[in-house]
Protein backbone atom coordinates (compact mmCIF):
# COMPACT_ATOMS: atom_id res chain seq x y z
CA UNK A 1 0.00 0.00 0.00
CA UNK A 2 1.27 3.45 -0.91
CA UNK A 3 2.22 5.91 1.78
CA UNK A 4 0.44 9.26 1.79
CA UNK A 5 1.89 11.44 -0.92
CA UNK A 6 3.60 8.49 -2.49
CA UNK A 7 2.38 7.36 -5.84
CA UNK A 8 2.79 3.78 -6.93
CA UNK A 9 3.96 3.41 -10.44
CA UNK A 10 1.19 1.69 -12.28
CA UNK A 11 2.12 1.55 -15.92
CA UNK A 12 1.99 -1.86 -17.54
CA UNK A 13 5.43 -3.08 -18.45
CA UNK A 14 6.74 -6.18 -20.06
CA UNK A 15 9.06 -7.10 -17.22
CA UNK A 16 8.65 -8.42 -13.76
CA UNK A 17 9.42 -5.65 -11.38
CA UNK A 18 6.49 -5.21 -9.09
CA UNK A 19 8.81 -4.40 -6.25
CA UNK A 20 9.88 -1.14 -7.83
CA UNK A 21 8.13 1.91 -6.49
CA UNK A 22 8.49 5.29 -8.14
CA UNK A 23 7.82 7.93 -5.52
CA UNK A 24 8.61 11.48 -4.62
CA UNK A 25 12.08 12.03 -3.19
CA UNK A 26 12.48 12.66 0.51
CA UNK A 27 15.27 14.32 2.44
CA UNK A 28 16.45 10.97 3.75
CA UNK A 29 16.97 9.76 0.17
CA UNK A 30 19.72 12.30 -0.42
CA UNK A 31 22.58 10.12 0.74
CA UNK A 32 21.60 7.39 -1.73
CA UNK A 33 21.11 9.92 -4.54
CA UNK A 34 24.49 11.48 -3.87
CA UNK A 35 26.03 8.02 -3.84
CA UNK A 36 24.47 6.99 -7.16
CA UNK A 37 25.53 10.22 -8.83
CA UNK A 38 29.04 9.80 -7.48
CA UNK A 39 29.20 6.27 -8.89
CA UNK A 40 27.90 7.36 -12.28
CA UNK A 41 29.88 10.57 -12.73
CA UNK A 42 32.88 9.97 -10.46
CA UNK A 43 32.37 13.47 -9.08
CA UNK A 44 30.94 13.76 -5.59
CA UNK A 45 28.79 16.88 -5.28
CA UNK A 46 26.74 16.62 -2.10
CA UNK A 47 26.13 20.37 -1.85
CA UNK A 48 24.66 20.44 -5.33
CA UNK A 49 22.18 17.69 -4.49
CA UNK A 50 21.21 19.22 -1.19
CA UNK A 51 20.57 22.50 -2.95
CA UNK A 52 18.64 20.66 -5.65
CA UNK A 53 16.40 19.11 -3.03
CA UNK A 54 15.86 22.45 -1.30
CA UNK A 55 14.88 24.03 -4.60
CA UNK A 56 12.52 21.16 -5.21
CA UNK A 57 10.84 21.62 -1.86
CA UNK A 58 10.37 25.32 -2.59
CA UNK A 59 8.82 24.71 -5.98
CA UNK A 60 6.87 21.50 -5.93
CA UNK A 61 4.26 22.89 -8.26
CA UNK A 62 6.58 22.90 -11.24
CA UNK A 63 9.47 20.70 -10.20
CA UNK A 64 9.43 16.94 -9.84
CA UNK A 65 12.00 14.91 -7.99
CA UNK A 66 11.30 11.19 -8.09
CA UNK A 67 13.20 8.15 -6.92
CA UNK A 68 12.98 4.47 -7.76
CA UNK A 69 12.60 2.61 -4.51
CA UNK A 70 13.28 -1.11 -4.47
CA UNK A 71 12.49 -2.71 -1.16
CA UNK A 72 13.20 0.59 0.62
CA UNK A 73 16.50 1.07 -1.22
CA UNK A 74 16.83 3.98 -3.64
CA UNK A 75 18.18 2.63 -6.94
CA UNK A 76 17.55 5.63 -9.17
CA UNK A 77 16.42 9.21 -9.33
CA UNK A 78 15.05 11.63 -11.89
CA UNK A 79 14.44 15.37 -11.74
CA UNK A 80 12.34 17.44 -14.05
CA UNK A 81 10.71 20.80 -14.20
CA UNK A 82 8.04 22.54 -16.19
CA UNK A 83 9.57 25.64 -17.68
CA UNK A 84 7.93 28.23 -19.85
CA UNK A 85 9.25 30.57 -22.49
CA UNK A 86 12.93 29.97 -21.92
CA UNK A 87 14.68 30.29 -25.26
CA UNK A 88 11.28 31.22 -26.66
CA UNK A 89 9.99 27.74 -25.96
CA UNK A 90 6.34 27.23 -25.02
CA UNK A 91 5.81 25.49 -21.66
CA UNK A 92 7.32 22.03 -21.65
CA UNK A 93 8.79 19.52 -19.24
CA UNK A 94 12.56 19.42 -18.95
CA UNK A 95 14.38 16.36 -17.66
CA UNK A 96 17.57 17.69 -16.21
CA UNK A 97 18.93 14.86 -14.12
CA UNK A 98 18.61 11.10 -14.20
CA UNK A 99 20.71 8.44 -12.54
CA UNK A 100 20.48 4.71 -11.92
CA UNK A 101 22.53 2.54 -9.61
CA UNK A 102 24.97 0.86 -12.04
CA UNK A 103 24.08 -2.50 -10.51
CA UNK A 104 20.45 -2.00 -11.51
CA UNK A 105 20.97 -0.95 -15.10
CA UNK A 106 19.21 -2.76 -17.93
CA UNK A 107 16.19 -3.49 -15.76
CA UNK A 108 13.93 -0.65 -16.86
CA UNK A 109 14.49 1.47 -13.78
CA UNK A 110 15.21 4.56 -15.89
CA UNK A 111 12.34 3.80 -18.29
CA UNK A 112 9.90 3.60 -15.42
CA UNK A 113 11.16 6.78 -13.80
CA UNK A 114 10.94 8.65 -17.09
CA UNK A 115 7.44 7.33 -17.71
CA UNK A 116 6.39 8.45 -14.23
CA UNK A 117 7.94 11.88 -14.74
CA UNK A 118 6.23 12.24 -18.13
CA UNK A 119 3.00 11.34 -16.40
CA UNK A 120 3.60 14.16 -13.92
CA UNK A 121 4.39 16.56 -16.73
CA UNK A 122 1.18 15.61 -18.51
CA UNK A 123 -0.78 16.18 -15.34
CA UNK A 124 0.87 19.60 -15.09
CA UNK A 125 -0.58 20.38 -18.50
CA UNK A 126 2.41 20.21 -20.80
CA UNK A 127 2.52 18.11 -23.92
CA UNK A 128 6.22 17.96 -24.64
CA UNK A 129 9.28 16.69 -22.80
CA UNK A 130 12.83 17.82 -23.51
CA UNK A 131 16.28 17.07 -22.24
CA UNK A 132 19.88 17.77 -23.14
CA UNK A 133 22.73 15.29 -23.14
CA UNK A 134 26.33 15.25 -24.18
CA UNK A 135 26.85 13.97 -27.72
CA UNK A 136 29.64 11.86 -26.28
CA UNK A 137 27.38 10.16 -23.76
CA UNK A 138 26.16 7.36 -25.97
CA UNK A 139 24.62 5.41 -23.11
CA UNK A 140 22.37 8.28 -22.08
CA UNK A 141 21.65 9.31 -25.66
CA UNK A 142 20.68 5.76 -26.54
CA UNK A 143 18.42 5.59 -23.52
CA UNK A 144 16.51 8.74 -24.42
CA UNK A 145 16.32 7.65 -28.05
CA UNK A 146 14.90 4.31 -26.96
CA UNK A 147 12.19 6.20 -25.12
CA UNK A 148 11.15 7.98 -28.29
CA UNK A 149 12.92 11.32 -27.85
CA UNK A 150 14.18 12.82 -31.09
CA UNK A 151 16.33 15.81 -31.93
CA UNK A 152 14.31 18.95 -31.32
CA UNK A 153 14.14 22.28 -33.11
CA UNK A 154 16.71 24.00 -30.88
CA UNK A 155 20.45 23.92 -31.23
CA UNK A 156 22.75 24.41 -28.29
CA UNK A 157 25.67 26.77 -28.99
CA UNK A 158 28.63 27.77 -26.85
CA UNK A 159 32.08 29.30 -26.86
CA UNK A 160 35.08 29.54 -24.59
CA UNK A 161 35.33 32.80 -22.68
CA UNK A 162 39.06 32.73 -22.23
Amino acid sequence: MALPGVRLFDMNTTITGDSLLIREARADDLAAIIGIDDQVTNIAKPEYWRDMFTQYELNREHRFFLVADEYAKVVGFIIGEVRAWEFGSAPCGWVFAIGVDPARRQSQVASRMLAALCDQFAQAGVTKVRTMTSRQDHVLLSFFRSQGLMAGPYQQLEKDLS
Partner: peptide
Protein backbone atom coordinates in the same frame (compact mmCIF):
# COMPACT_ATOMS: atom_id res chain seq x y z
CA UNK B 1 30.00 14.81 -34.61
CA UNK B 2 26.29 15.36 -34.83
CA UNK B 3 25.82 12.64 -37.45
CA UNK B 4 28.04 10.26 -35.53
CA UNK B 5 26.20 10.68 -32.25
CA UNK B 6 22.81 10.33 -33.93
CA UNK B 7 23.67 7.13 -35.78
CA UNK B 8 25.43 5.67 -32.77
CA UNK B 9 22.56 6.33 -30.40
CA UNK B 10 19.78 4.76 -32.44
CA UNK B 11 19.54 1.01 -32.09
CA UNK B 12 17.51 -1.36 -34.23
CA UNK B 13 15.08 -1.71 -31.32
CA UNK B 14 14.62 2.05 -31.29
CA UNK B 15 14.04 2.03 -35.05
CA UNK B 16 11.34 -0.60 -34.61
CA UNK B 17 9.70 1.49 -31.94
CA UNK B 18 9.73 4.51 -34.27
CA UNK B 19 8.31 2.45 -37.11
CA UNK B 20 5.56 1.00 -34.97
CA UNK B 21 4.74 4.38 -33.56
Amino acid sequence: ESINSTLRSISLATMLMLKNR
